[in-house]
Simulated assay, not measured.
Amino acid sequence: MKNFKPIWLMVCTLALACAPSSKDEQTAENEETSIFRHQPLVTHMYTADPSAHVFEGKIYIYPSHDIETGATSDDMGGHFDMKDYHVFSMDEPGAAVKDHGPVLKLEDIPWASRQLWAPDAAHKEGKYYLYFPAKDQDDIFRIGVAVADNPAGPFKAQPNPIKGSYSMDPAVFQDDDGSNYLYFGGIWGGQLQWFEDGELVAGRKGPTDGIPAPDQAALMPKVAKLTADMLEMAEKPKDALIVDEQGNPILSGDNQRRFFEGAWVHKYNEQYYLSYSTGDTHNIAYAIGDNPYGPFVHKGNVLLPVQGWTNHHSIVEFEGKWYLFYHDTELSGETHLRNIKMAELQYNPDGTIQTINPMK
């Protein structure tokens, strides 16, 4: 695969290679010239939307797989035309990252037509579950699930999508009592704005069709408890309500704080943290609640904007430390050809999160 580094970075690298310095000095100089605070975890292919989990004592990462297909670029994300999923693992932070190869392909999903976007994974009673969005034969996003006997797959897709599912960006949170909750949704290309009360509204086809007025409550991510077999929703999806400090829903016109896509939930000190992308303002924001359904009170940003239009993240604990996984476009400079990264995450004494700046 060609390595589409920005021209300025290629020039800097060539100049450093010609300089009469030791290897250690050259490495230090390269790091000083980089504008990026964290290094790509995977460089032999393009990866994005990293969902990280600790399974069997290792960190497993379930990203989407960016490729160049020639698909037309549009406001609905048509150029994000991914066709399979790979699984990656590392023994610990900083260790070598292992590519377990393709674990699920588009042609092996009976109901799907295109666009394998951001997935997530879960574990229960010896089985591993991969949750993924794809467009059905009517070009509407649904959420599917595939099952494996180990965290590295391969995964076998169920013959049909999850009943009642729609939109994209599935994420599964397992609470301390063993209950599992599915979060999902994304506006614009994610089609969440096309649905009301779980039903597709006729005539909505554009990225803003169905978006509330700026002074109205924003569209919220959806949440539903999963069935015991992890294959269906046990209840009708509800809004995971995001509110301000006064308890008022975040408004549709509040682009710095409103939900756009990429919901993720983790638990810290008995509090539930809902984090998500603000989309066109490029933050990873977060809000805190007392239960998996919310409401969640907006507190600030986990991550400031990266290079590239999109961002999508996950947060996981490993051996007493917390880590943020995210993506940017350092390797390619192209919006749809991304690379995954990680950074250590720190909490303040009051439970708020210290904002991470991905750029130097």
Score class of each variant (00 low, 15 high):
Glu125Asp: 15
Leu130Gly: 03
Lys205Phe: 04
Leu200Ala: 00
Ile140Cys: 00
Ile140Leu: 13
Thr208Met: 11
Pro170Ser: 01
Val147Trp: 13
Gln191Ser: 03
Asn160Trp: 13
Phe184Ala: 02
Gly210Phe: 06
Asp197Ser: 07
Ser167Asp: 06
Ala146Arg: 03
Gly178Val: 14
Asp149Trp: 09
Trp188Lys: 01
Gly210Leu: 01
Thr208Ala: 11
Phe195Met: 01
Ile162Cys: 07
Gly210Ala: 07
Lys156Arg: 15
Leu130Arg: 07
Gly198Ile: 11
Asp177Thr: 04
Phe132Ser: 02
Phe155Ala: 09
Phe195His: 01
Gly185Cys: 07
Gln137Trp: 04
Phe195Tyr: 12
Ala202Lys: 14
Gly164His: 06
Asp175Glu: 15
Gly206Gln: 09
Lys163Ser: 14
Ala157Glu: 02
Asp169Thr: 12
Phe173Trp: 12
Gly126Asp: 14
Trp188Leu: 14
Tyr129Thr: 10
Ala146Ser: 02
Pro161Arg: 04
Lys205His: 11
Ile187Cys: 02
Leu182Met: 15
Gly206Thr: 11
Asp209Lys: 06
Gly190Leu: 02
Ala134Gly: 12
Ala152Ile: 07
Tyr128Pro: 00
Gly198Lys: 09
Phe195Thr: 03
Pro154Arg: 02
Ser179Asn: 14
Gly178Pro: 12
Gly186Val: 08
Ala152His: 09
Ser167Tyr: 13
Gly144Lys: 12
Glu196Val: 01
Asp177Pro: 08
Asn150Ala: 15
Tyr128Leu: 14
Gly126Leu: 11
Gly203Glu: 02
Ile140Pro: 00
Pro154Gln: 01
Asp169Glu: 07
Glu125Gln: 14
Ser165Glu: 00
Gly189Ile: 04
Pro207Glu: 14
Glu125Tyr: 08
Ser179Arg: 15
Ile143Asp: 00
Gln158Thr: 04
Asp136Ser: 10
Ser167Phe: 07
Ala157Asn: 08
Ile211Met: 13
Ala134Arg: 05
Tyr131Glu: 02
Ala148Val: 13
Pro170Glu: 02
Tyr183Asn: 15
Tyr129Phe: 15
Asp139Ile: 05
Gln174Trp: 03
Gly185Phe: 05
Asp177Gln: 09
Asp169Tyr: 11
Leu200Lys: 14
Ile143Gln: 07
Gln174Lys: 15
Gly198Trp: 14
Gly144Met: 13
Arg204His: 12
Gly190Thr: 09
Trp194Arg: 08
Val147His: 08
Lys135Leu: 09
Val147Asn: 06
Leu130Met: 07
Pro154Thr: 07
Tyr181Asp: 01
Ala148Glu: 08
Glu199Cys: 00
Val147Met: 02
Gly153Gln: 12
Asp138Ile: 04
Phe155Gly: 10
Pro207Val: 12
Asp139Gln: 08
Lys156Met: 10
Ser165His: 06
Gln158Arg: 08
Glu196Lys: 07
Phe195Leu: 04
Ile211Tyr: 05
Lys156Asp: 01
Pro159Asp: 15
Ala134Ser: 10
Lys127Thr: 06
Leu130Val: 10
Asn180Trp: 11
Asp175Asn: 10
Tyr181Ala: 01
Gln193Thr: 05
Asp169Met: 09
Asp175Gly: 09
Pro170Leu: 03
Ser179His: 03
Asp177Tyr: 15
Tyr128Gly: 06
Ile162Gly: 07
Phe195Arg: 02
Phe184Cys: 02
Lys205Asn: 12
Phe155Met: 10
Thr208Arg: 10
Phe173His: 15
Asp139Met: 12
Asp139Lys: 08
